[in-house]
Nucleic acid binder design. Structure first.
Lengths: 119, 119
DNA sequence: CAACAATATGCGCAATTGCTCATGAAAGTT
DNA sequence: AACTTTCATGAGCAATTGCGCATATTGTTG
């Protein structure tokens, strides 16, 4: 165990600590390149696991695990079709999220870049 | 080493893989409850490290590390004032991000809740 | 400069995570 | 029922991460 923080001085917050945990979990699920790859592959529409494997280059086992993570967190949805399982994006809000992060990252990169050129 | 994926079948993507890595990193930085706590504490305005410690209940060393992470990723900014260091939110886009995630989490929770009540 | 206050950091540890390999489980085909 | 295809999962491993403790660093004050 490596967690032992004071449980004091909380107060003043619109968001409870449990909510914070949920939000953090959400972010953490999205904080994995291969999972983002899977999401990106599903932007164009639903795909089977093998389709996703082909699109992303991931290992079958690895893809399956990430897909499980994404599905459990409500980001993706699944549907059976014969022997294959078809995944789709269940929470379109993801797109706006990624857009926002893209924006932030770009401005960040721009700032870093200008640190080389200007000054 | 535990990373060895095919580097094939990429194609078809508006977002490059490097960009995906950056975005993932961004998400991962936000995927930590204590870091979100720090951000939340800074919503009302800038605070020194000791102020943040008091507001969040984090250990000094721990807070310092998380603040470093947040600053390096461009989310927070720092400023010296005598012996203390004042942190502030440098990327306001964070707020919209959190709002969005809040929304997603809420609908997710609602769905889970309805799984108990309705059926 | 000495002493002090505020913050950062090296180090080691325990927990988590992402991966591969092998195997299990579900559905379709003959 | 045996076989195949498609996907999920248990086991083990290496890397990462979050933490506390102690210590270094930086700035202030006497």
């Amino acid at each position: 165990m490596a967690k032992r923080e004071q449980v004091e001085g909380v107060s003043a917050g619109e968001i409870s600590d449990e909510a914070l945990d949920l939000i953090a979990t959400r972010f953490r699920v999205l904080g994995e390149p291969n999972r983002l790859k899977l999401i990106r592959a599903l932007e164009g529409g639903e795909l089977s696991v093998s389709g996703l494997i082909e699109a992303t280059g991931l290992t079958q086992a690895n893809a399956s695990r990430h897909l499980q993570t994404l599905t459990q967190s409500g980001i993706l949805g699944r549907r059976r079709d014969g022997t294959s399982v078809i995944y789709h994006i269940a929470d379109p809000g993801i797109f706006r999220l990624c857009e926002l992060v893209c924006g932030s990252v770009q401005t960040l990169l721009a700032r870093h870049a200008s640190a080389f050129t200007s000054n």
